[in-house]
Simulated assay, not measured.
Amino acid sequence: MTATHVPPTLTRADTRLPLAALIVMAATVLVVIMTETMPAGLLPQIAGGIGVSEGAAGQFVSAYALGAVLAAIPAIVVTRGVRRKPLLIISLLGFLVANTLTALAPNLAVALAVRFVAGAFSGLLWGMLAGYAMRITPPEQAGRALAIAMSGTPIALAAGTPLGTWLGSATGWRWTFAAMSALIAVVLVAAMALVPDAPGQAEHTRLPFGHVLRLPGVATILGVVFVWMLAHNLMYAYIAPFLKQTNLDVKPDVALVVFGVAALVGLWFTGATVDRFLRPLVLSSVVLFIVAGAVLLGASGSTPLGILAIVLWGIAFGGSATQLQTATGAAAGANFDAAMGLVATSFNLAISAAGAVGGALVEGVGARSLPVAMIILAAVALVAVGFGRRAAFKPVR
């Protein structure tokens, strides 16, 4: 293990993964992703239930993202020295209250305020979960631990969000958020019982955020996070118009399930190799992402080719969060939580930018242009990884 990697703060007599705790963290990630993405599939029900337009209901997603962007860095600054388990419990309680109040919201203003608060708690969780997973894990298995802890993302995309959308369509959108509250309560109890505590960052090791940003490799990794996530979210957010305009006989929900299952494959492969082959893994993933974009570009009218492209896209993207977080840990060392606050901010800025840029492309030149944007942005990420070989994406030993 290199000296820059996040050191474990719990002494372990063996090299076993704390599997139960990591599964609880994966469940936490799952509820965070579902809370963020479910409104996109329930806009008609939300709009009808509150009595607003679908465009206004779409602000459920924007308010959440805004809360995450604005709160991630301040939340990490305030909580860097706080013990990790109480912070996890408080964040889950915040999600529980926010989802419950969303289900009970009498009007749009109250709902958006509560969604903003939920987004703020998500910014806090994204800034601390990866570092927490690494702190309770033997250092030689840090990448594998991250893969398990972050597996909630593809599971949410493949199964959780579609299930929540179906439930909302069948019973009403408020019942979906109520069900989410029940799920969060289960995760909260499991976290209390199964996740060990870990200390926060020692005061004498805390660098200001500006200094963290200037650590060798951190700025390069943040740039890769932004352009790669922007490339992904352009297609993910506008998959429905793309499928329609390219005459692919695949329903959007089916396409997203295929993507999510393929992403699990990519995540599994990342977990098995990231601790030994970080840099080759990132390069291969970005190259495969570009290949997927090229296949999407040529898939017009060919459903089998379109499905192949979605599978390649999912495999390429599935381990991206683990790869980028592992690289961040190697570059930021003891200041990993602070660096993850920057990563979370870059990630959410990419989501916001994808909504605007993707909308302009779809309305302007058509959804067929989305794979071109995917390829160009991923190529920029590939160049950044290539030129960052001295400081960023170093192997974790």
Rank of each mutant, 00 (worst) to 15 (best):
V227I: 13
P252E: 03
L256H: 01
N247F: 12
P208H: 12
V257Q: 09
P241D: 05
H211C: 08
A202C: 13
V250Q: 04
N247H: 15
F209D: 01
M235P: 02
V224E: 01
P241W: 03
V224G: 02
L207T: 05
F226V: 07
D253R: 10
G260P: 05
L222P: 00
H232P: 00
R206G: 01
A255R: 02
L230V: 11
Q245P: 07
T246G: 02
A231L: 05
P252M: 10
L248S: 10
T220K: 02
V212W: 03
F259A: 06
N233D: 09
H204W: 11
V224D: 00
P241Q: 10
V258Y: 01
N247V: 10
H211A: 15
P241S: 01
G260T: 05
P252N: 07
A240P: 00
R214C: 11
F242S: 03
Y236E: 03
V224A: 06
L230C: 02
L234Y: 00
W228E: 12
V254W: 09
Y238S: 07
A219P: 06
D253L: 11
A202W: 08
V254M: 09
P216E: 10
V225E: 01
L243N: 04
K251D: 10
Y236V: 02
P208Q: 07
V261F: 12
D253C: 09
G210H: 10
A219F: 12
V212F: 03
K251I: 11
L243R: 02
Q245I: 04
Q201N: 10
R206M: 05
L243E: 04
G260N: 12
D253T: 15
T246I: 06
P216W: 06
M235N: 05
P216I: 06
L215Q: 11
P252A: 14
E203T: 13
D249E: 14
P208T: 08
V261A: 13
Y236Q: 04
G217S: 13
K244R: 13
K251M: 12
R214M: 15
I221V: 14
F242W: 11
V224R: 00
Q245C: 12
M235D: 00
M229H: 06
Y238D: 04
V224Q: 07
D253K: 09
A237L: 08
E203F: 09
Y236F: 13
V250T: 15
L256Q: 07
G223R: 03
L248D: 01
A255V: 07
Q245T: 07
P216T: 05
A240K: 06
V254L: 15
V261Y: 04
T205E: 14
T205C: 04
V254A: 15
R206W: 12
T205H: 15
A219C: 08
V225R: 03
L248F: 03
V261W: 00
R214V: 12
R206N: 09
L215W: 09
F226A: 05
G223F: 04
P241C: 10
G217H: 10
I221E: 06
L213E: 07
R214E: 08
V218K: 04
V258M: 04
T246S: 11
D253E: 14
V225T: 12
L230G: 02
F242P: 00
H232W: 00
F209I: 14
V225P: 00
V258R: 08
E203R: 15
A240F: 04
V225S: 03
A202D: 13
G210F: 09
V258C: 05
V258K: 01
I221D: 00
V212H: 03
V250I: 15
